[in-house]
């Protein structure tokens, strides 16, 4: 936020603004910038997802809108969703039904505050950064339950109950896997975690030691479940629950669910990038090659690689069943993550 505040001060007559407004301006500007960036990233990710799925399935995907490989297709779709009629079914709980998509989105969006995209491009550096992300991103569960309950649809209810159970359960191995990194940095601040990994690829936590590598794997699997991606897409399992908790939604409200889903995907990829892949730092140490590429670009490339793997998994794997989902969480991921904390703690004390 400091860098945003400095930018704002370059605006002529910015000093003339009243104190209350100039105090709010950096917050507002950061939110707008973050939202714009997120919206763009989501549009790109939706397009990428379509292309990846299409090519895995020997199709081409969107090819017409915008010319080159249908790059404008998602923009057109987003416009369509925003312009559609806002349908609220007759028998829903109107207040909850209308609020739910925004709360789901809020949970995803609020976590972006502490993500360090570059050495100076972050909104704020909380000293409990990673804990804040873990806490805030589970907010969306409330929104999902609201959506499922208020829709007055049995499929929505099933979807939301599954989602709640799944997200809450998988928080645990994800958080424990994160703790392995914290053991090494001794700090919960996202910026400190990245700074601890500077100096080339060998300093990334992913390649520091085998425990951290496995912790990355555990976090990646758990994060897939947290964002409801295949093979853990039970809450919106099309063949069973039609569309899960957003069955009754259409138009703009559906678009917000969609946005939240992809924002969550990007969030977990960003967290994994920050924790394990060195955030904005480049693979080649600065002593060998000067750092020409801006930090945010490096960050985005790393995050996109992880997102690509998420998509690749989605279009190759079938879906798990509810009991198997819980089996993997409680009987596989959780013991493994505890063992990893022990191992990593031992390594950190060496």
């Amino acid at each position: 936020m400091e860098s945003v505040a400095q930018l704002l001060e370059k605006i002529p007559k910015y000093d003339a603004l009243p104190e209350t407004i100039s105090a709010l301006m950096p917050i507002l500007a950061s939110s707008v910038i973050l939202f714009a960036m997120l919206a763009l990233a989501v549009l790109f990710m939706v397009w990428l997802e379509r292309k990846v799925s299409a090519h895995i399935q020997d199709r081409l995907g969107p090819m017409v809108v915008g010319g080159w490989h249908g790059w404008a297709q998602t923009i057109a779709d987003a416009l369509k969703l925003l312009l559609k009629e806002d349908i609220v079914p007759a028998s829903v709980d109107r207040v909850l039904f209308k609020m739910a998509p925004f709360i789901v989105f809020l949970g995803a969006f609020a976590a972006y505050v502490v993500l360090p995209f570059g050495s100076s491009s972050f909104v704020t550096d909380l000293n409990i950064g990673i804990l804040y992300i873990v806490a805030v991103s589970s907010l969306s569960v409330i929104g999902i339950i609201m959506a499922g309950w208020s829709s007055n649809n049995k499929y929505s209810l099933y979807g939301s109950m599954r989602a709640a159970a799944q997200i809450v359960s998988y928080e645990i191995p994800a958080a424990v896997a994160i703790m392995t990194v914290v053991l090494f940095t001794g700090s919960l601040s996202m910026v400190d975690i990245v700074r601890a990994q500077t100096g080339g690829i060998q300093n990334w936590f992913l390649f520091r030691n085998p425990f951290l590598f496995l912790a990355f794997v555990v976090y990646f699997i758990a994060s897939l479940a947290e964002v409801n991606r295949t093979p853990f897409d039970l809450p919106e399992a099309e063949s069973e629950l039609v569309a899960g908790y957003h069955t009754e939604y259409s138009g703009m409200r559906f678009a917000f669910f969609f946005l939240a889903e992809y924002a969550n995907m990007f969030l977990v990829a960003s967290v994994a990038t920050t924790l394990f892949l060195g955030g904005w730092t480049q693979a080649v140490p600065a002593s060998i090659m000067p750092q020409i590429v801006p930090g945010p670009v490096v960050f985005f490339v790393k995050a996109l690689i992880l997102i690509f793997i998420q998509m690749w998994m989605r279009w190759s794997l079938p879906r798990l069943r509810v009991d198997q989902l819980m089996y993997i969480n409680w009987k596989v991921l959780l013991p493994v993550s505890f063992a990893l904390v022990l191992g990593a703690g031992w390594m950190a004390t060496l």
Binding site: S53, I56, Q57, D58, R59, T230, P231, D233, A237, E238, S239, W315, S316, L317, P318, R319
Partner: peptide, 13 residues
């Protein structure tokens, strides 16, 4: 059947 189980790619193949 793949589609029912949640895997979309076999359907298109």
């Amino acid at each position: 059947y793949g589609n029912d189980i949640g895997s979309f790619t076999p359907f298109l193949w």
